[in-house]
Simulated assay, not measured.
Amino acid sequence: MKVKVLLLFLLISGAYAQNKVDAEKLVNEGVILHDKGDYTGAIDKYSKALEIDKDNLLALSEKAMSLNSAGKYDESINVCKLAILSHSSDDLKNIYVSYANSLDHLKKTDEALRIYEEGIQKYPNYYQLQFNKGICYTNSNRYSEAISCFQRALLINPKHAGSLNAIGLLEMGDHRIPAILAFSRFLIVEPQTSRSKKNLENLKKILTQGVKQTDEKSITININSSMLPDSTGVKKEDDFSQVDLILSMASGLDYDKKNIKKTEVENFIRKFEVICASLEETKKDNFGFYWKFFAPYFIEMKNKKLIEAFAYIAYVDSDSEDVVKWHKKNQAELDKFYNWSKDYNWKNNQ
């Protein structure tokens, strides 16, 4: 009798293991289809995986994501609820992202934020929850709260290009220096993509913001009043007014005789060196996320004489002849820069 029971157990265990293997194979096929944009095909693969292994968490997680991408938000939410009920003790961080993201798409902002917060409480070190919560705030025009979420995402993952991109775009209107630092870091993390091309243009635009040549001998520099120091003398959080003023003066020198014949990258290097030097000179009395997180990185970049390499990395999408030549001749400088940036200790900035 014991032999029969053991044999039955082994048969059941073997069938379960085979079901799990077959289900995971279908999930992998679904992921490939999802990455190609075939969400319907992917969802079909995940559904078949769940037919043979009904509680497979990976299949549930991927199905919820594909349903979300296909615009089937209610169905995605139902899958997420099922996963949470059947896998309460498992890793559900991506389930919470899909769940809240679907609610956000349905304009159920308060519910979405509640689910994001529930996920963050369970998985405080998962940057995607903070990032997507920031997107939810952005969608409801709550930009200050959105920026705080993107900042927290970067504290968890300093290489997260999405958060860098979002901060740059949200800050570029009234907070030029934080936007410059965010876009600059973005171009290091994600060069040669469609977003990097746009962000290089954003960076070039805000570097020369307010500076205009009116005729051959005249230059007008308009200063945004929000960039000026507080008249009360009280220091504000993330006050870059001094750096901003110095940058405006440096940008005005683009039209000076000694600079007008320089290449665009050479003038970029000159201005960026001014920014970094000004950050170092004024950091002592300043505070805030951008001063603590970004400023030390760029100050160290200057002190290690890596700004030239950074500039040519930033301009790699420009296809300018001088940029192409520099990249061909300076692989050692590029390696030196990337090794430094890869090994940079961001924990000191938290």
Results as ranks from 00 to 15, higher is better:
3 V>D: 15
3 V>H: 14
5 V>M: 09
7 L>F: 11
17 A>H: 09
20 K>M: 02
22 D>F: 01
22 D>N: 07
28 N>R: 11
29 E>P: 00
30 G>C: 06
33 L>H: 02
35 D>A: 08
37 G>R: 07
39 Y>L: 04
40 T>S: 15
42 A>T: 03
45 K>V: 01
48 K>F: 06
63 K>H: 06
68 N>T: 03
68 N>G: 07
68 N>Q: 11
74 D>I: 04
77 I>R: 05
78 N>K: 15
79 V>N: 04
79 V>Q: 07
84 I>Q: 08
87 H>V: 10
91 D>T: 11
93 K>P: 01
93 K>E: 10
93 K>L: 06
98 S>R: 05
98 S>P: 01
115 I>F: 15
118 E>P: 04
119 G>P: 06
119 G>K: 02
121 Q>H: 13
123 Y>C: 07
126 Y>Q: 05
128 Q>T: 10
131 F>D: 03
135 I>V: 15
150 F>L: 02
151 Q>D: 10
151 Q>N: 13
151 Q>I: 08
152 R>G: 02
155 L>I: 09
157 N>G: 01
157 N>F: 01
157 N>D: 11
158 P>I: 04
159 K>C: 09
161 A>T: 04
168 G>N: 00
174 D>F: 14
177 I>P: 04
177 I>E: 05
180 I>G: 07
180 I>Y: 13
181 L>M: 14
182 A>M: 07
182 A>F: 06
185 R>I: 01
189 V>K: 02
192 Q>T: 10
193 T>A: 01
193 T>D: 04
205 K>N: 13
209 Q>V: 06
209 Q>T: 06
210 G>K: 03
214 T>W: 04
214 T>G: 03
218 S>R: 13
223 I>H: 11
225 S>A: 13
231 S>I: 13
235 K>G: 06
239 D>N: 04
243 V>T: 11
244 D>M: 09
245 L>C: 05
245 L>Q: 08
247 L>K: 05
248 S>G: 12
249 M>P: 03
260 I>K: 13
262 K>V: 09
263 T>V: 08
263 T>A: 10
264 E>S: 12
266 E>W: 06
267 N>P: 01
267 N>R: 10
268 F>E: 00
269 I>T: 08
270 R>V: 08
274 V>D: 03
279 L>I: 09
279 L>K: 01
280 E>W: 08
281 E>W: 11
281 E>F: 12
282 T>M: 08
284 K>A: 06
286 N>W: 00
291 W>M: 03
294 F>V: 00
296 P>V: 03
298 F>Q: 01
300 E>L: 07
302 K>W: 02
316 V>P: 03
317 D>L: 07
317 D>M: 10
318 S>Q: 05
319 D>T: 09
327 H>P: 12
329 K>N: 14
330 N>M: 09
337 F>G: 02
339 N>A: 11
342 K>D: 13
345 N>V: 09
346 W>A: 06
348 N>P: 04
348 N>A: 15
